[in-house]
């Protein structure tokens, strides 16, 4: 750990990595709160994996992979949203199919992409140590968009997340708000995928919020707690991985999983408070 802190002071790439982790925690904590309370972790996973298909296609045709990722993410968010609204009884099958096919298409395109091979592992687990400075600004801008949208629509989004039927009877645009929520999740996935990788996006979208829901009494407090937990977990994971030269992403994920397990056990064993 001390080795990490002395390295942090002298190495710019570590400072960028730390900043990337903190910025990722903000977006993931806010959107993760909706993912957890609305129980759409599986939908988020489907969106995240379909993104790989878009990135692969963009690389193959010689475009910016982030453009492909963005188009694929928004398209899959809308398709998955439409599936859950229209074909709820086949929801899991259809999303599983989209998940697997999206990823397979990505791998096929990557295999056929001319030039030196694109590393699939870097899309799955990312490399937080290689985040360019300009990506940090992009992440900060995304966080600003997410915070702004959630502040403006906090109450109707709460109503839709809490009780869709009641929100519909009150005349709220439930379908629009639901699809907007999925598109915001998709946006979060896209902008974080190059930085922290597909798997870490899903881990950060679900685990800090899942821990937070055990302690927070309101959605707002849950968001704040999830962001704080995400920040603590990514920073600690980064620090722990540095000295033994472990990959940072998987270290953060294992740490987050362990924290969730411990928190759940503690809640089961200790008497419940009023929350």
């Amino acid at each position: 750990m001390t080795e990490f802190f002395s390295a942090l002071a002298s190495h710019g790439f570590l400072q960028s990595a730390l900043a990337a982790g903190l910025l990722a925690s903000v977006g993931c904590g806010i959107m993760g709160t909706y993912v957890v309370v609305k129980r759409i972790g599986f939908l988020a996973g489907g969106i995240a994996h379909t993104v790989l298909g878009g990135m692969g296609a963009a690389l193959y045709y010689g475009h910016d992979p982030m453009l492909g990722a963005l188009l694929a993410a928004v398209a899959s968010a809308l398709v998955i949203g439409w599936i859950t609204l229209r074909f709820r009884e086949h929801e899991d099958t259809l999303i599983s199919a989209l998940w697997a096919v999206g990823m397979a298409v990505g791998v096929l395109f990557l295999a056929r992409t001319p030039g030196y091979g694109v590393d699939l592992m870097s899309y799955l687990f990312g490399n937080i140590l290689l985040v360019p400075r300009e990506d940090l600004w992009l992440m900060a801008a995304l966080d600003a968009v997410l915070v702004g949208t959630v502040l403006a629509l906090y109450r109707p989004l709460l109503a839709v997340a809490f009780d869709e039927e009641f929100a519909r009877l009150r005349g709220l645009p439930v379908t629009f708000l639901y699809l907007l929520l999925l598109c915001l999740v998709a946006l979060t996935v896209v902008l974080l995928i190059r930085v922290v990788g597909l798997i870490l996006v899903i881990a950060l979208l679900t685990l800090p919020a899942a821990i937070a829901t055990q302690y927070a009494a309101t959605l707002g407090r849950m968001m704040v707690l999830a962001v704080a937990l995400g920040a603590a977990l990514t920073s600690t994971g980064l620090a722990l991985s540095y000295a033994p030269d472990l990959p940072a992403g998987p270290t953060i994920i294992v740490l987050a999983g362990g924290a969730y397990l411990l928190s759940t056990l503690a809640r089961q064993l200790l008497p419940r408070g009023s929350g």
Binding site: V37, L158, A161, F162, A216, T218, L219, M222, G275
Partner: peptide, 11 residues
């Protein structure tokens, strides 16, 4: 039947 989860974080 309430259409929401009882453990939803809301007051």
């Amino acid at each position: 039947y309430p259409a929401f989860a009882r453990d939803f974080p809301v007051t």
